[in-house]
Computed example of a mutant assay.
Amino acid sequence: MSIGIIGSGTLGSNFARALAKKGISATISNSRGPESLSTFVEEIGASIKAGTVEEAASADIVLVALRWVDLKGALSALPAWNGRVVIDGTNAVEFLAPDSPDATDARNPLAVYGIKSVDLGEKYSSEVFSQFVPGARVVKAFNHNPGEALLEPKVSGGQRVLFYSGDDVAAKAEVGGIIEAAGFFPVDLGSLDVGGPLASLPFGALSTHSFVKINE
């Protein structure tokens, strides 16, 4: 089983670090090319290599760790997914420039956090995300906590809980296995239309909360 990572920001890079700590192999990529990641992969260990977006996207399981506004441009030109597993690590939010009018808009309750919600109409985020990866088996995961949380699978005497959801049982099992192998405690929230909204920022009831499975 091969793992690819599209995006090397906070989520993508810390997911790679979590895998590297356990010696799990993966290919990480970004829009700037493998050369821009050479120092990073040298630092975190031999199990992680840098590749092109196309190389990362060809893996059996691919984490998409991109900003919402970049999804269409980054994913639209990639080859067919052909039933491979794609992990939706995104949230439907837009990051605001500090000097933009939106950053001080009193009508936006999220402005204080430097973000605003993207209007998806009546759709939930993974429903829209799935349109960018036709033919993939989508699993929602790794999006409900800050990316820095992936650096600490063990906290407060237990394991950090990571939620995941999806409509394909086998795909969820594979992602749950990666979560467990990386040292976290996986919790299946069910189907995409149920679990996805629960764990999605900014308004998901389970998002931004740090749950810990206490080991007996």
Results as ranks from 00 to 15, higher is better:
V194C: 01
G45N: 12
G157V: 04
F211V: 09
P153Q: 07
E42I: 00
N82M: 01
V62L: 06
S165W: 04
K213G: 00
G73H: 04
A170V: 13
F184Q: 04
A181L: 01
L71A: 08
P79Y: 12
F163N: 06
A59I: 02
D193F: 02
I6L: 15
F185Y: 15
V41I: 11
A181V: 02
A205F: 09
F40G: 04
V139T: 05
P79M: 10
S126T: 14
L189K: 11
I44R: 09
G83C: 03
V169W: 01
E174W: 03
G204P: 06
G12Y: 02
L96W: 03
K49H: 09
D168A: 11
R32V: 04
L78P: 12
D168F: 01
V128H: 13
N215R: 10
V169K: 15
L78I: 08
K140F: 00
V118A: 13
I87E: 05
E180G: 08
D88N: 12
V133D: 08
G158P: 07
S200E: 14
T27E: 01
T39I: 00
F40L: 07
V86I: 13
A57T: 09
K49M: 07
G147K: 04
P202T: 10
I44V: 07
S200V: 02
R107M: 04
D99Q: 11
